[in-house]
């Protein structure tokens, strides 16, 4: 039976669609400029800070966020880890990676939270979004690197875009989940006192969904970090580039050291966002 139906030209259709999209160059250039500005701002700030001050700030923030429990092991790890990165000569790569991660997470947050809220408010929207989120998380990242380069050129920006696509789903899902988990009687209470939908969201749903939502943000950040090597293939600079080069040169030593730097950064980011989340509650 099957040979009777000719092969569907799905790939051709997608190519045509991508070609069609390229006529909106102005729009994509706008996005590139916007994201590029955010990336430059972060990078400018990190380049401004001397290494010792950067380390002090990280330690200070961690100390403040984990008060009153004094987590000396964490602080010690952060100090030694950052000193190691400095010593290995990965400092600027580390700040570039941090810029990539922070920019992607910020964008994932700005787009993801409203999407999550809409999902919580509308069953139809939830039904539409769920497969899209699955697609975003499971479609191999290399696949959307091709159009990303077509639309956004090479460099940090397409790297950010690719990271956002991969990293956003947890924020969306956890926002949706957090809002849906607010106990029904609190929603009834908010309604019975005449809250508008907006008041209910701001005063009751979001504050009570906060810790779930923040867990999503933490996840997004970790996923964004896991994209740095792939992003480096389209010119996003950072620790990923070092790994990528090491692979190309078949250099196990420097591949491992730059990988280690990524792990150190990941642990620091993870513990800090968790600490901030706990503190808020």
């Amino acid at each position: 039976m099957l040979p009777l139906i000719s092969q569907l030209p799905l790939a051709d259709w997608i190519n045509e669609f991508v070609d069609w999209l390229t006529q909106f160059t102005g729009f994509f250039n706008g996005i590139t400029t916007g994201i590029g500005a955010v990336v430059d701002l972060f990078q400018w700030f990190f380049d401004l800070l001397p290494q010792w001050l950067f380390i002090l700030i990280i330690l200070g923030l961690t100390y403040w966020a984990t008060r009153p429990a004094r987590k000396w092991t964490l602080l010690g790890f952060e100090l030694l880890g950052l000193l190691l990165i400095w010593n290995l000569g990965f400092w600027r790569d580390m700040t570039q990676t941090l810029t990539l991660v922070l920019t992607s997470s910020l964008i994932a947050l700005i787009i993801g939270i409203p999407l999550g809220i809409l999902m919580a408010k509308s069953k139809t929207f939830e039904a539409i979004m769920k497969p899209i989120l699955d697609l975003m998380q499971t479609m191999p990242a290399f696949v959307y690197l091709i159009p990303a380069v077509a639309f956004f050129g090479i460099g940090m920006v397409p790297g950010v875009i690719a990271s956002v696509i991969f990293a956003m789903p947890p924020t969306v899902r956890m926002t949706n989940l957090g809002i849906r988990q607010v106990p029904a009687d609190l929603i009834e209470a908010a309604d019975s006192y005449g809250s508008t939908g907006w008041q209910k969201l701001i005063k009751v749903q979001l504050p009570l969904a906060k810790s779930t939502l923040m867990a999503g943000v933490n996840q997004s950040m970790m996923l964004a970090l896991s994209m740095v090597v792939i992003a480096s293939m389209i010119g996003a600079m950072g620790l990923g580039t070092q790994v990528y080069f090491a692979v190309g040169r078949n250099d196990a030593g420097s591949g491992f050291t730059s990988g280690l730097a990524i792990v150190i950064l990941a642990i620091i980011l993870d513990r800090m966002t968790q600490a901030f989340n706990k503190k808020k509650n």
Binding site: D185, L186, E188, A189, S192, Y193, K203, V204, P207, L208
Partner: peptide
């Protein structure tokens, strides 16, 4: 309205 399980925020 007053609720059975208080429904305090």
């Amino acid at each position: 309205m007053v609720f059975q399980n208080f429904a305090l925020f």
